[in-house]
């Protein structure tokens, strides 16, 4: 009974934290971008502008919920839900601490994460296709190609980690980093995963599916109101998920001295979230062909190389263990 209650609390707590965190991120991002551009960012609503989120939420809820007459109605509605669901489900396998986490101790955690990450592609592709407009379709197609590309070596980049820890279980992976964070032995893997993570969440500089200067707003051109809001929040959940995975896979998860594990996790998570925002503030968007050739010609060989080197080192240093 207690166990069940604890499990439910865990689920509800994490869901709430995620959704609220994602919403707050919209404000945090705008403020940070402001600071990095020598502005103030939203600072009028509530203390330091933090209630901007509430204001935006009210606005977005009261916006006309418009479905274009030419759109494929059901798919059009389904698409934003998919991105939310996939993002939230992906978080199920993150072990925040040994005790907090929904299925952190699951023996196929990494695989489940990869599965959910792939699922979110559907959302973008379906949105672009169902909108039945040129910009949206082009955005959806870009997203599909980009995802297929980066999906490949996102998986490959994690092979090194799995080889070192000998497990798909994320809790085991964290525990395996008690002595040394995997960022050091798996530096190449980390770089590749970071890149792939950005691409998967289609954040700047890899946000070509919604490249506004050529595609309007890309796959979500036709979306408005709360359905657009779900895409928006879905993107932030994606950021949180990717940042959490980086923390877990390469930076030792909750492990750390002095502070309680939850704080360590949060701290590490925040650093990467902020890093994501910094990327947006600083870097321009590459051309689409550059993105693709970078993926296939650089990152894929690199991740394969990483597997080979990791394997070679493991072989040379003795029997697996």
């Amino acid at each position: 009974m207690n166990l069940l209650l604890f499990g439910l609390l865990n689920i509800i707590g994490i869901l709430l934290a995620l959704v609220i965190g994602a919403a707050l991120l919209t404000w945090i991002e705008r403020r940070l971008l402001g600071f990095w551009q020598d502005r103030r960012g939203p600072n009028r609503v509530g203390p330091f502008g933090s209630l901007q989120v509430v204001a935006d939420m009210i606005k977005i809820l009261f916006k006309q919920d418009w479905i274009p007459p030419f759109a494929d109605r059901y798919v059009f509605v389904l698409a934003p839900a998919v991105v939310m669901v996939a993002g939230l489900l992906g978080f199920a396998v993150i072990p925040v601490t040994p005790s907090i986490g929904i299925a952190g101790n699951w023996n196929i955690g990494v695989l489940f994460f990869l599965a959910m990450a792939s699922l979110s592609v559907y959302s973008v592709v379906l949105a672009g296709w169902a909108s039945n407009s040129k910009y949206s379709l082009l955005g959806g197609m870009r997203a599909a190609a980009q995802m297929v590309t980066y999906e490949v070596f996102m998986g490959l980049s994690l092979i090194g980690v799995v080889m070192l820890s000998g497990s798909f279980n994320l809790t085991d992976i964290v525990r395996a980093q008690r002595n040394i964070w995997f960022i050091i032995p798996q530096f190449i893997g980390f770089i590749v995963f970071l890149m792939a993570g950005i691409a998967e969440t289609h954040r700047l500089p890899f946000d070509l599916p919604e490249g506004e200067n050529e595609l309007g707003a890309g796959f979500h051109t036709e979306y408005s109101g709360m359905k657009f809001g779900m895409f928006f929040i879905g993107e932030y959940i994606g950021i949180l998920l990717t940042a959490a995975m980086i923390t877990v896979l390469f930076f030792g998860g909750w492990e750390g001295p002095f502070l309680p594990p939850i704080l360590w996790f949060m701290l590490k998570l925040s650093v990467f979230v902020i890093f994501f925002i910094l990327l947006r503030a600083a870097l321009p968007r590459p051309r689409y062909d550059q993105l693709m050739s970078y993926g296939w010609k650089v990152l894929l060989p690199l991740s394969l190389l990483n597997v080979v080197i990791t394997g070679a080192v493991m072989l040379a240093s003795g029997p697996a263990g």
Partner: peptide
């Protein structure tokens, strides 16, 4: 240069805001 850009942009966190 990308990394340098990131760093320089990060440093703007400590600049004065131009907003009136």
């Amino acid at each position: 240069s990308s990394i340098r850009t990131l760093w320089l942009t990060f440093l703007h966190l400590f600049h004065r805001s131009e907003t009136v």
